[in-house]
Design a protein around this nucleic acid. Structure first.
Lengths: 243, 243
DNA sequence: CCGGATATTATGTACAAACATATAAACATA
DNA sequence: TATGTTTATATGTTTGTACATAATATCCGG
């Protein structure tokens, strides 16, 4: 990856700067909490104007990757894993944007009979089997989330798909299904034996349960998703504005 | 709401412009699909520079409320529908709407020194005391949430207010402060001894912690709020739509 | 009437220059 | 020692200017 800015490159300078910063802040030196060089200096270093640099910084600040404080400086935001409802990035995409590399620990695909909640949500008979996808995911140090997804038969998944690809990519490109609306319920629970074992913690420890009801363009249900997150490594964030 | 920009107002011009635009685009004339005036013209109209106007526009574009096209113009995004007003009911209002009658079990008002998080958020010195409001609330059968609120000194609360009135009513009517933006973080925790006692459950039981960072019209911080909810009686819901 | 050159319009990119303001450190005073 | 005061530092705000580029409208020759 390029470590300097090329004024000949047709790519706008502020985009180049943005990319460059994205790499720069992955350096443990910075993600460890050290302040970035100050704007004037950094601008000089990159041979761009402060305004252009600021344009790039703003974007990362807006995404929540950097925090700035007047009179003090700019540094990488606390690496607390979080989820922004506004973004429709895939899980992996969003995490990588924050410099977190996602490792897949387990992956199981099965066909099961839906329980009442699922049959109700999908509006199908409880006798019709649905595809169940279970995934244990996390960082290199260990897993921090156990996902269980159920898919509406209408979507057409066979279970033979390569689920290492981003899920929403598979749905869009191969099954012409676009997830457009999502309703989520977030609650706290104690880890039962099963989840505790998966997430490598003691039974009874707190976990964050995130249920997602996902709909397609026509507001038809397509996915029911449960995410069991280790409480010590996940924060859910929401931003709302009154009109 | 003000329909023009006041250079005397200490509120930064680009924030004023942002607020103004937010109102402007509510007009069916614009939400109907008409282009906004072009940047040069609009800047002249508002008596600010194009750069400043652009700063404001950028924000709305980033939020997905506006779309711009080079050489063409700027207009309100098609499906920028948000049913967020629901989020902005007061706690009591919202609960009553669901048929839940709220009982106040405890209410404490104190002046305290802010910890680092709060001082940082408020952008004040850790030596300046802030008003702390604690409330234990719930249903007749028992409490289910413990709220702790800290208020920015700027707001002007004395601690003598009648906190049985809805909080946002006090802020708006008596202190000319309108909570406009809120950022929330939801996480799971185990109840410590203090919270467990308040919520009448065993130490170690799971609770949902909802941190809220509340801002006024000028995006200045006004309230920091912690809500400790019994996990068995509270679910947080979010709805998001992709465009 | 068509197709291509050309002009117009509006946003996009980039720089430079001031001045404002919050923070923290260094310093001075009671 | 405790408390102001100054100063250096870094981000925040605002303006002015210039040119680039995409989309559209216009004109003009064949």
């Amino acid at each position: 990856m390029n470590l300097s800015i090329d004024h000949k490159n047709p790519l706008p300078l502020h985009i180049q700067a943005e990319n460059l910063l994205r790499n720069m802040i992955k350096d443990p030196q910075y993600s460890g909490g050290k302040f970035l060089p100050n704007e004037v200096q950094l601008a000089k270093q990159l041979a761009i104007s402060r305004s252009t640099l600021r344009h790039a910084l703003n974007k990362l600040v807006y995404e929540g990757l950097l925090t700035r404080k007047k009179g003090v400086g700019t540094k990488v935001a606390e690496a607390a894993i979080s989820s922004k409802s506004k973004n429709w990035l895939s899980f992996t995409q969003e995490m990588t944007a924050r410099g977190i590399i996602i490792k897949n620990f387990e992956l199981h695909v099965t066909w099961v009979l839906p329980d009442e909640t699922i049959a109700n949500f999908f509006e199908i008979s409880p006798n019709k089997k649905v595809l169940k996808l279970e995934r244990l995911r996390g960082k290199a140090e260990g897993p921090f989330v156990y996902f269980i997804s159920y898919f509406h038969p209408r979507v057409g998944l066979t279970g033979e798909e390569d689920f290492k690809r981003p899920l929403y990519d598979i749905l869009e490109k191969d099954y012409m299904t676009v997830a457009t609306l999502s309703k989520e319920e977030i609650s706290a629970k104690s880890a039962d034996k099963f989840i505790a074992a998966k997430l490598e913690l003691e039974t009874g420890h707190p976990i964050l349960l995130r249920k997602r009801f996902v709909y397609d363009q026509g507001e038809r249900p397509i996915e029911y998703n449960l995410g069991y997150y280790r409480a010590d490594s996940f924060v859910y964030t929401v931003e709302s504005r009154r009109e």
